[in-house]
Design a protein around this nucleic acid. Sequence first.
DNA 1: CGTGGCCTTGATAAAGTTCAAGAGCCGTGG
DNA 2: CCACGGCTCTTGAACTTTATCAAGGCCACG
Lengths: 227, 227
Amino acid sequence: MKITDLIGTIPLFEGLAERHLDDLAMIVVDQKFARGQTIFSEGDEGNGFYVAASGRVKIFKLSWEGKEQILHIFGPGEPFGEVPVFSGQNFPANAEAMEESRIFFFPRKSFIDLVRENPDLALNMLAVLSMRLRRFAALIEDLSLKEVPGRLAAYLLYLSERNEGAQRLELEIAKGQLAGLLGTIPETLSRVLGKMRDQALIETEGRRIHILDMQGLEVLAETGGRL
Amino acid sequence: MKITDLIGTIPLFEGLAERHLDDLAMIVVDQKFARGQTIFSEGDEGNGFYVAASGRVKIFKLSWEGKEQILHIFGPGEPFGEVPVFSGQNFPANAEAMEESRIFFFPRKSFIDLVRENPDLALNMLAVLSMRLRRFAALIEDLSLKEVPGRLAAYLLYLSERNEGAQRLELEIAKGQLAGLLGTIPETLSRVLGKMRDQALIETEGRRIHILDMQGLEVLAETGGRL
DNA sequence: CGTGGCCTTGATAAAGTTCAAGAGCCGTGG
DNA sequence: CCACGGCTCTTGAACTTTATCAAGGCCACG
């Protein structure tokens, strides 16, 4: 598949004229990253942004002691690392490939020129950033206002929703990573899953999770959740 | 002062041509809110966004039990409530005037038209949203990776920085509100301030805080902070 | 002078983390 | 084919941090 065609399938670039897609294809840098490889680190100078073409990327913050809080997990078609492009300054977090990934890099300057000429691209990008703010607001709410069971319940419901309300789910990430996403540690996550099992909210079998009591989970997620 | 001139002083609209400022003046709605009055609530339909002209506004999330997590406090010149304009959907949080405030409201549709014609405005808005993402990332880091003393230390250093490194600070918000901003409750904040006092990091006198040991606070903020 | 808002302090309880140990699983290489 | 080492995950016990509940102090304002 030619690179122009690939770029055309990226939602961010939806509605762009052919010639603009060609412009993008001209400036793009096509990169490969191995599992565990760093794409950028907090504090690095950000002179461009990225779009995942294949694979998965996690964006995360690290504490002094090494605990990690995952901010996002991005898959194919999703842009990341845009903040420094528009705010100046450096990357506010770290990015690492979770598996073998192909990543497109778009240099800042040419991209800004493109945005300048192209209102649709600007609006698309505004929509992307707005969605991201919305998600962050939800994450802040979870971290500050809910306890771990509530966050986990919310996450499971989110997964279920993404699968047309399926009750049989398969985690696409390791439990340790999920802990980092929920703002806790693997031990706590394990215990909370155990309690949910005790209360017949779910059944678990490795990465497979079977939701037994959707309503119960909803109550947990809404109330922030004591088990 | 005429409304066009006021609008011209808003950083978001910096660099706009005279005629575009006039366009804005045409579509703006000038509103007044009393202390404690709701500007919008989470879930409301967002068919426009706001800029504070005077006064102060807090953006916050509420938990089921009524605990509040403040996401932002905005003062004169700062825009808020833009997320629904670009992402569609509703407001992700609540907004309330903290004091008598004059607020400009810009209806969505005409504003989008303006963005479409005006790349500089688009880039300004992208910069605003990017800065906001950066701040959210920092808040998430604080909530998840630091303990209350670390967050408080970071906040005090931030205040100091905003005052050219001054060691004598005055909180511009009530301590109860500060607790909401730091993701804790007034009792805990009070105790942490007490401990910092015990350790000669600060002196307090009502809303006045005198930093005695800047370095000590920096260590606290970096390490996430056990006192 | 009393009332209400805001802040502080103490005792208690809950939630989460830490530390330590061990179970299960998987791919590699003998 | 099996044993080994390296992961990830689970479980338990002690400990830390923070929230909750309750009471009292301080201050401004009517």
